[in-house]
């Protein structure tokens, strides 16, 4: 009974904080005020103040977390609605996603090797641009540390959602297709959530490339890792 009450409080707290932070973001629309980021920080601070561990938080948090599966399934909806465009631009989409996967994974390997990071950490970083459920599985297959992978996945997501818009403007990536594919293949679902601000076409391009990244990434990941361990 007490546990149920605690779970309900945690859920309500998370949702309330999120709603308030969304209002704040809409009001000022400053990139660092991204609701996921601010809500996470507020909750971590609150949990630390009241000495609540992450696993206790998850008694309630898992209910929100468990909606991620159906949310990934829900991506079929924008994909279906934009299917004609997706089919007619299949070549730029596949190429963009493929190039993104290769550059993303090899750059991690190169930087990490140069800086002398240990193998298990490198392997945990490799799937950072894939969506969380996929990244966790790829990390496990590669021999990384899955919870560590979540952290890198989140950092990759934030990088895209916060720094992405200005960075793409610099590089003159201004077509809806280019932006969507960049968001989806670099910053998975967090980038996809951000891409919704650019309209439905960008959103569906982003979800297409996120999905393709997940599928291709789970195949390419082990190959890249294997090539560099020889």
């Amino acid at each position: 009974m007490q546990q149920t009450l605690f779970a309900i409080i945690v859920i309500l707290l998370t949702i309330t904080a999120y709603i308030l932070m969304t209002r704040l973001y809409v009001r000022f629309s400053f990139p660092l005020l991204l609701p996921v980021l601010t809500t996470t920080i507020i909750l971590i601070v609150l949990l630390s103040i009241f000495h609540i561990s992450y696993s206790s938080y998850m008694i309630g948090g898992q209910w929100i977390h468990s909606l991620l599966g159906p949310a990934v399934v829900a991506l079929a909806y924008p994909l279906y609605k934009q299917r004609h465009i997706v089919v007619s631009y299949w070549f730029p989409i596949i190429s963009g996603v493929f190039v993104g996967l290769i550059t993303g994974m090899t750059s991690v390997l190169l930087f990490a090797r140069v800086l002398g990071i240990d193998q298990t950490l490198i392997l945990s970083m490799l799937p950072k641009s894939l969506t969380t459920p996929v990244a966790l599985q790829v990390s496990e297959v590669l021999g990384g540390i899955p919870p560590m992978t979540t952290v890198f996945v989140m950092i990759a997501g934030f990088t895209g959602a916060i720094l992405g818009p200005a960075f793409m403007k610099r590089l003159r990536i201004n077509s809806s297709l280019g932006k969507g594919i960049a968001f989806g293949s670099a910053s998975h679902a967090l980038g996809t959530a951000k891409s919704a601000e650019y309209g439905e076409f960008t959103l569906s391009m982003s979800s297409v490339s996120m999905t393709l990244s997940a599928i291709l990434g789970s195949i390419i990941g082990p190959i890249v890792a294997w090539m560099f361990t020889i």
Binding site: V99, G100, G104, L163, G164, A182, S185, S187, S209
Partner: peptide, 14 residues
């Protein structure tokens, strides 16, 4: 690495 991924995939597809 995320920025590189973004730039490469975005420019390539565009």
């Amino acid at each position: 690495s995320t920025m590189i991924t973004m730039g490469a995939s975005g420019m390539m597809s565009q």
